[in-house]
Amino acid sequence: MEDLIEITVTVNGRAVHERVPARMHAADFLRGQLGLTGTHVGCEQGVCGMCTVLLDGEAVKSCLLLAPQLDGHEVATVESLAPDEGLAPLQQAFKEAHALQCGFCTPGFLMTATALARSGRTLSRDDIREELTGVLCRCTGYENIVTAVDRHINGEHVDV
């Protein structure tokens, strides 16, 4: 039996105390132990970006973090975005721009874009495209995703 490590971590604003194996990665912890299955697991080697969450407000790949590393930190997952009723503005922008097809990559894009929107940076469409390169979409190409994030951050454009 492996040693378990006690951690206290704030997940989506709620403090949780859990015991985790040292080698468990944070995405498995969020999904398997906390039941927050909005965080998706794709490659488990830091390439696809499906598992992106916010760690202390910054976008990170949760498959490259070990669960014990979360101790004392704040995590936000895609479950934190929507209000009780309806969608968050960023999610609404994804819906309106048809920025998802199968939806598997969507949590990764939403969390990466959430951190980006909060950064307060001035961002061109090219900047946004560059900032989103750490999340892969295999359905559609990226135009509508970039459009959704661009509209969310910079407001409506007439040319799309």
Partner: peptide
């Protein structure tokens, strides 16, 4: 040593490395 983990953690997952311990310097 576990620093950012962006190369180390994938190598651990692929079992290219099997250290007895990780010393997390974060």
């Amino acid at each position: 040593v576990l620093a950012g983990g962006q190369s180390l953690v994938p190598m651990l997952g692929m079992r290219l490395m099997r250290p007895s311990a990780l010393v997390d310097i974060n």
